[in-house]
Each structure stands twice: as structure tokens, then as C-alpha cells.
Amino acid sequence: MALIGNTGTVEAANPAFVSSAGMALEQLLGMEEADLDAHLSTLDLPRRRVEVSVDALRAVHYLCNSAVPKQDMRHLARVAEALREPLASIYGFTELLLTQNYDEPTRRDLTAMVLEQVEELGNLINERLDLTRQTDPPGSSA
């Protein structure tokens, strides 16, 4: 990851990011975020930008350059998307329960929905683990 400070430039980057970006740390440090973005867009790598509201930081850029083949990366992206759906309900309903004054029947109803989505999340994880075990039996990677 690379950290963008309030000045809009790169303030820090970890070795994995430096290596994946194909640049020297010295080149990255102080680089304008727009220039970094332009450089990263030329790399055929999954990436993500997260805005942050910490005092001295504006954003964090993540770059993924593992040895995982592209097909597997696409599969991982699909898994992540599937997991985000129940997570969205869990996050959202929990936030509303914590911050809003609902009547008791509504609170119970929303809590039941959170529980239902936790079960859904567990089922999705178990399904994916089962698929992984079928294609990659225990001990086969050791």
C-alpha cells in the first residue's frame, strides 16, 4: 500500500507496493496522487483506492501483484463480491440499530435479519471452502 498525505502526494509505501509498482521508493515518495494514479493505470493489476479521514492522510492505494494466476484472481474477485452482499446487510442494519431509535418489534426484526445474513455469510464461506477442498485436497499444497 501507498499512503497519500494531505498535501496530495505519496508519503509512504511498503516494499510490496514499491515492487508491484515497478518503481524505486525514492521515485514514489513525493509523487502527486494523479501521477501515481496514471502510472498504476498502466499496470494490469487489481488495485483499490480508499479515502481516509485520518488527520494527516487523504487516501490509501492498494495494489495486488501476487503469484496467483489471472483466472484465480478473477475467481477471488467473484468470491469477494459474493461475500460483500451479506456483509452489506450486516454492516448497514447494525449501524442503524446502534444509531436510530426504533420500536421494539422493528429492533427484533432487524436483529433477526442480521442473524440471517450472518448465517448466509457462513454458508457462502463453507461452500467456497468445500469447493477449494474438492480441487485442492488437504496436504496437497504442502
Binding site: L40, R48, R49, A88
Partner: peptide, 23 residues
């Protein structure tokens, strides 16, 4: 649920006013 920057850029290029990633 598409959290990749490329998806967000596509959304912006199509004229979306904001983009929220689940969760």
C-alpha cells in the same frame, strides 16, 4: 460489490454522481 478502482472509474465515466462499495 465491485470494489476495484477500474469499476469505480467506469462508473464515473458513465456519469455516476457517487459510488459506494458494499459494505
Amino acid at each position: 460489490a465491485c470494489g476495484q478502482v477500474a469499476d469505480q472509474e467506469l462508473g464515473r465515466s458513465l456519469g455516476a454522481d457517487a459510488y459506494f462499495v458494499k459494505p
